[in-house]
């Protein structure tokens, strides 16, 4: 009852937005589709929610074909599009009531499923959705997407434009929903959210670059990575990029993530080189790769 995607391709205005995409989401899995804006995440979501036809390939959601059985899918999935699609001029309760009605159910009938989430916004149930904060809109949109007890939940960039506290709470909610037996496919441009999924697919320019558990993806990073810092960030970056043995140089917060093209790399050599470039307070030490490092290595 999960999702199965095989060889899906899609073009839009002569630009290929999805290239031969295949992967499976297991029943009851929390699966992340990780990639920047324009990678094709939304297009794939729209194909899976029967809003677009694929040009090539087939896909099933909860056992139903996305082309042939679209009516069945529309009854069985919950979909939260990119922007929180709520009626701004309706109150919190009216929004929820409306979505319950069009799915042929009532708030009371499925209250236990949304209770966790809805109690947090219930004190504001008479407030218009347009006047809610980003975090509250997100919770309301999720409640609306869940009100008919879907088997599969599609969340397209649910955490974009939401503050860190709400983001954290949101992921906690997803974990609890998963325990209730719902299969969840979530997309996000934030690499740090990948670690919260059971498995992730890294997507860029319509291509899936890697599919695995977050731990495995990080473990597969081919080279040792070094955190490098010095007193002047700009000079440090330009010097490292001029270094003949560099494999990759990426600023990474207060550090630069550096990999070397040689297998027998010795940090001392780099230290000397940087000193020769008049850099001061140099620090070099090995660090763990992140999903973002993997993403960049694959996208290179």
């Amino acid at each position: 009852m999960g999702i199965s995607i095989s060889n899906i391709s899609k073009s839009y205005k002569n630009v290929k937005t999805l290239h031969d995409i295949s992967f499976d989401v297991k029943p009851n899995e929390l699966f992340g589709l990780i990639g920047p804006d324009g990678a094709g995440k939304t297009t794939l979501f729209r194909i899976l929610t029967t809003l677009l036809f694929p040009d090539e390939g087939t896909a099933t959601v909860a056992g139903f074909d996305v082309v042939g059985d679209y009516k069945e899918i529309r009854k069985n999935v919950g979909y939260m599009p990119g922007r929180f699609s709520l009626y701004q001029d309706l109150t919190v309760e009216e929004n929820l009531n409306f979505f319950a009605t069009i799915f042929g159910t009532t708030i009371d009938e499925n209250y236990d499923l949304i209770k966790d989430i809805y109690v947090q916004i219930e004190p504001f149930k008479d407030r218009r959705a347009g006047k809610l904060s980003g975090g509250m809109k997100q919770k309301l949109a999720l409640s609306c997407a869940l009100i008919h007890k879907p088997k599969v939940l599609f969340l397209d960039e649910p955490t974009t434009g939401v503050d860190p506290v709400s983001r954290k709470e949101f992921w906690e909610m997803l974990k609890r929903l998963q325990q209730k037996g719902i299969t969840i496919l979530v997309s996000t441009p934030y690499m740090d959210e990948a670690a919260l999924c059971d498995r992730v697919a890294l997507i860029q320019d319509g291509n899936i670059m890697e599919i695995d558990t977050p731990e495995a993806i990080v473990k597969h990073y081919p080279k040792p990575i070094y955190n490098v810092r010095a007193h002047n960030m700009y000079q440090l970056i330009t010097s490292l990029k001029d270094y003949e043995f560099n494999h990759s140089v990426y600023p990474f917060g207060e550090f630069v993530h550096y990999t070397d093209s040689r297998t027998d790399f010795k940090p001392m050599e780099l230290q000397h080189y940087l000193e020769s470039k008049n850099l001061k307070n140099i620090e070099i030490h090995e660090t763990d790769a992140t999903i973002e490092d993997t993403f960049m290595e694959l996208a290179k």
Partner: peptide, 21 residues
């Protein structure tokens, strides 16, 4: 830098470092 891919994002920060420098 909201929403851009990680590599472009780094290029963007390099431009910021340069301007600050």
């Amino acid at each position: 830098t909201g929403g851009v891919d990680p590599i472009t994002r780094r290029q963007f920060w390099e431009m910021i470092y340069k301007a600050a420098n």
